[in-house]
Computed example of a mutant assay.
Amino acid sequence: MGAAILAVLLWQVGAAPFVTALTEVTWWALLAALAITVLTTVCAAWRWSTVATGLGVRIGLPAAVAAYYRSQFLNSVLPGGVLGDVHRAVRHGHDVHRMGRGVRSVVWERILGQVVQVVLTVVLLLVLPSPVHALVVIAVVGVVVVGLGFALVRVSGVLLDDLRRILRVPGAPVGIVLTSGVAVLGHVTVFLVAMFAAGMEVSAGRGVALALALIVLLGAAIPASLAGWGPREGVAAWAFEAAGLGAAAGVSVAVLYGVLALVAALPGALLLVTPRLRQPRLRSLRCELPLGREPRSEVTPR
């Protein structure tokens, strides 16, 4: 699907917006993206650490940050845009010898982060005086879909028990909302940096730039991309055209944002290839068991 969207964009706007975006990459934009991504990664890693603690497969913040950087890099270079999270989930489950809970900790971390992002997007789009209020309909649909998803989750006793465990961690509800909000605003800031680097002059007072950033990032979360590319550029083309800025401009900014995000995730590549950093020490429920006892495996031997 990601490749199909890119093909349609190439047919509609040509290759010029893609080439233009590559020529507009500047050192200050790259450095800004690297610095901002440190903050967003720490926030997301803290959220994961909190969720994992609630599920009894605790991971320390330094190890969580390293694992999150690796997952971001893999998401940026592998199809689908979620294989890095799959790698993070399976690896954590293996390290703590609780594969089911280890994987569910990543699933819940991503779900909770996306819920906060959708809600924050809807609220800000309803408040911002911008010419893209028609796009709020799409955001509201996203909220409805998420709500239905949680209704289905309640059918499963295991998942409902997971959610209760997570929310019982001291400070978890407020912490998850705050860290997720900071992470979203960090990604929005990187998108605004991309707009500025591309020479876009949008009135910040009217909220156009912020509204466009929120909508494009919501589209970027669709797990149907080609290493992060496709839905993001498609939504950007549509949103910028709706705002009267032109589809080509939207594609250029989205591509430039993609380049900045890829460079900002490069520390994850270093963590993948550096042997000394490849196996971070993870603290889990196993460390809390008395000597001589091993955690019960969730996998039934054949």
Rank of each mutant, 00 (worst) to 15 (best):
P129T: 14
S130D: 03
H133R: 13
L135I: 09
L135Y: 03
V136I: 15
V137G: 06
I138M: 14
V140E: 04
V141P: 00
V141E: 02
G142K: 07
V143N: 00
V145P: 01
V146W: 01
V146D: 00
V146I: 10
G147H: 06
G147N: 01
L148V: 15
L148C: 11
L148K: 09
G149N: 09
F150D: 05
A151W: 12
L152G: 15
L152H: 12
R154N: 06
R154F: 08
V155E: 08
S156P: 05
S156T: 12
S156Q: 07
G157C: 09
L159E: 12
L160N: 11
D162K: 05
R164F: 00
R164P: 00
R165P: 01
R165D: 11
I166Q: 01
L167Y: 14
R168V: 07
R168I: 06
V169S: 00
A172I: 04
G175T: 15
V177F: 01
V177T: 11
V177S: 00
L178T: 15
L178R: 10
T179I: 04
S180P: 03
S180D: 05
A183E: 11
L185G: 09
L185F: 14
H187D: 10
H187R: 11
T189C: 09
V193E: 04
A194E: 02
M195V: 14
F196M: 13
F196I: 15
A197E: 08
A197M: 05
V202E: 07
S203H: 14
A204R: 14
R206V: 13
G207W: 02
A211Q: 02
A211W: 00
I215A: 04
V216H: 02
L217Y: 08
L218N: 04
G219S: 03
